[in-house]
Amino acid sequence: MNTAFTWQGRHDGDGEEHLRIHQIINRSATADYALIGFSSDEGVKRNKGRIGAAEAPNAIRSQLANLPVHQPITLQDLGNVICQQDQLEQAQAELANQVQYSLEKGMQPIVLGGGHEVAFGSFSGLFQYVQQHQPQQKIGIINFDAHFDLREAEQVTSGTPFLNAAQLSAQHQQEFHYLCIGVAKHANTKVLFDTADRLQCDYIYDHDLQVAQLPSLIEKVQAFMAKVDVLYVTIDLDVFHASIAPGVSAPAVKGIDLNVFEPLFQAIKQTGKIRVFDVAECNPQFDLDNRTAKLAAYLIFNYLFD
């Protein structure tokens, strides 16, 4: 783990009404939430995408630092898991252990990606924890993403994490519950749709994510959540339009709108079932005015505060 990031930012005062995230982080040994960076784009490289996401965790931290604190929370930064010398599988295992450690300490992990290969590490950490402590509980994955990431490949990549999760579940005779929100038909081959159907995955197309359809969309998401006990929620930033998320491996031609995303996310959050949350595919090398890093920080802010 690398803990080189220095938390700093604007200082308006020390009263509760003045506080920003950089003023409350790392003030206690344990906390309500744990930040874990995943510095990797090896999976994106293997998937022949635009590399650069390995620099994302600290870019997101920089945007988080000045955000205001609107209610009392405690937050611990556990540093970055770094993928070194192409050892992606090892980095995913280390991330899984950090996620499990956080859960063991009563902290909810928030993982900062990194390529979407982060998802298998995040899921594995929750899976390990549930297997050890509450094996009867059913895990659900909700992935906001233009891509299924159910690709079959000889090695893990940013395109394989949810097939890897399905395989891990099957190895332990556990049901696989996966909902992908924002799937773009033009961004997934037929074999990926076939795989999703074979695994009985739920999915919602990007073109169906309209404000006018919110009641039925929320109903669909709630029906999925009712089948599971705990949730791993992951947001691939390429699910949003390239105008607000230009710094990703695969910028979206269409993308979904925050006005649709936010009510769906709130409905998920209100269940109290989220145990692990991450954002993925922020790529500072291709970002414009830190828009994508700001978006990632904004999403985390909305997760932290009511």
Rank of each mutant, 00 (worst) to 15 (best):
I110L: 12
Q210D: 12
N302C: 11
G52I: 03
A187C: 15
Q92C: 12
A250I: 10
E152A: 14
Q222S: 13
Q87A: 15
S169G: 14
H186P: 06
L88K: 00
Q167N: 13
S169E: 03
F123V: 09
N58I: 03
T160V: 08
N2Y: 12
L295S: 01
L168M: 13
A196D: 04
E42M: 11
L199G: 02
A166V: 05
Q71W: 08
G114N: 06
T189D: 15
H172C: 13
H133D: 06
S216F: 09
T6L: 13
G49F: 02
P215S: 09
I21Y: 00
Q171W: 09
N164F: 10
E17F: 12
A267Q: 12
Q222M: 10
T160C: 09
F148A: 00
V233G: 01
G121Q: 02
I268S: 02
T160M: 05
A184V: 09
V191L: 12
A267P: 02
E104G: 09
P215R: 11
V248R: 03
Y298A: 11
T74V: 07
I181P: 01
N47L: 05
T234P: 04
F5S: 00
Q128F: 07
A245S: 15
D41T: 01
A91W: 00
I73E: 06
R275T: 01
E219Y: 08
A153D: 14
Q63T: 01
Q270L: 14
R20K: 11
G9S: 06
L192M: 15
N66D: 15
I25G: 02
N80Q: 09
H207Y: 15
P57G: 07
H22A: 08
Q266M: 10
S122T: 12
D14H: 14
F240K: 03
T234W: 04
A226K: 14
K294E: 07
F5R: 00
V230P: 01
H11R: 11
T189Y: 12
G115V: 04
G182N: 05
G37M: 02
K220D: 06
A170T: 12
Y205D: 10
L150K: 02
Q8E: 14
A165W: 00
A196S: 10
D149S: 08
L163W: 09
I82P: 02
V248W: 02
K269Y: 09
G272H: 09
I36N: 01
A29S: 12
E42R: 07
Q173V: 04
H172D: 08
A166S: 13
A226I: 06
I256A: 05
G114E: 06
E117Q: 10
P109A: 10
F224G: 01
Q173K: 11
W7M: 04
I24T: 01
E55H: 10
I110A: 03
I142M: 07
P109E: 07
I235F: 06
D236Y: 05
E94V: 15
P135H: 09
G159Q: 06
V111I: 15
E16S: 12
L163E: 05
D77V: 06
Q85V: 10
G49N: 06
S40A: 14
I73G: 01
A223S: 13
Q137D: 11
H70R: 13
A293H: 00
Q137K: 14
E16D: 10
D32K: 08
G121S: 07
D208T: 11
V111F: 08
S62W: 01
Q200W: 07
L209W: 00
R198H: 15
I218G: 05
A242W: 03
N58L: 05
A153N: 14
N164P: 00
L103F: 08
Q90D: 12
V44H: 03
P161W: 02
